[in-house]
Computed example of a mutant assay.
Amino acid sequence: MTRLTRTFAALSDDTRFALVDKLIRRGELSAGTLAAETEISAPAISRHLRVLREAGVITQRAQGTHRYYAANADALRAIHGWTMDHRAFWSGSLDRLDTLIALDPEGDDR
C-alpha cells in the first residue's frame, strides 16, 4: 500500500476526516481538547488519532503527560499534488456535465 493510499484510507472515516479538518483549521490541539469537542469517548478518539498518525496524516508531540496533534503538511501536499495531477480528468468531466445541462436547460427527466 502506498503512502497516499494509506492517507486516503485513514481519511475515509468521517470522524477521522473531521479531526484532520479541525486540525487544519485550528492548528495544533491536545488530545483532550479534541475529545472534549466531540461526542466520542476519549479511547475512541485515541484510536482514531493512532490511525491518522500511523498513516502519516497527523503528527504527535508530547509535552509532559499531554499529547498534541497537528496536521502533517507533507501529507496535505501529497493530497494536493495528486489532486492537481488529476485535474484534467475533473475539468473534462465537469465540462461534459456543463454541455449536458446546456442541452436540457429545463432538466426534464426522461
Rank of each mutant, 00 (worst) to 15 (best):
M1L: 09
L4Q: 03
L4S: 05
T7Q: 04
F8Y: 13
A9Q: 11
A9V: 06
A10T: 00
L11I: 00
S12F: 00
S12V: 01
D14T: 00
R16Q: 09
A18Q: 02
D21Y: 12
K22A: 03
L23T: 01
L23W: 06
I24C: 05
R25Y: 02
R26Q: 04
G27D: 06
E28H: 01
L29S: 05
L29N: 10
G32S: 10
G32D: 11
T33F: 04
T33A: 09
A35Y: 05
A36P: 01
E37C: 00
I40F: 09
A42I: 12
A44R: 14
A44I: 10
I45C: 07
S46I: 03
R47W: 10
R47A: 08
R47P: 02
L52P: 01
G56D: 08
I58L: 03
A62E: 15
A62Q: 15
G64S: 04
G64M: 07
G64N: 03
T65L: 14
T65I: 12
H66M: 08
H66D: 15
R67H: 12
R67I: 01
Y69G: 08
A70L: 07
A70Q: 10
N72F: 03
A73G: 10
D74H: 07
L76F: 03
A78D: 15
G81Q: 15
G81K: 10
W82F: 15
T83S: 15
M84A: 11
M84P: 04
M84E: 14
D85I: 07
H86F: 13
H86M: 07
H86V: 07
R87E: 04
F89V: 03
F89E: 11
W90L: 11
S91Y: 07
G92T: 07
S93D: 06
S93K: 06
S93F: 15
D95L: 05
R96C: 05
L97Y: 14
D98A: 13
T99H: 14
T99M: 11
L100S: 06
I101R: 14
I101W: 14
I101K: 12
L103N: 11
D104K: 13
P105N: 12
E106T: 11
E106N: 13
G107L: 05
D109L: 14
D109C: 08
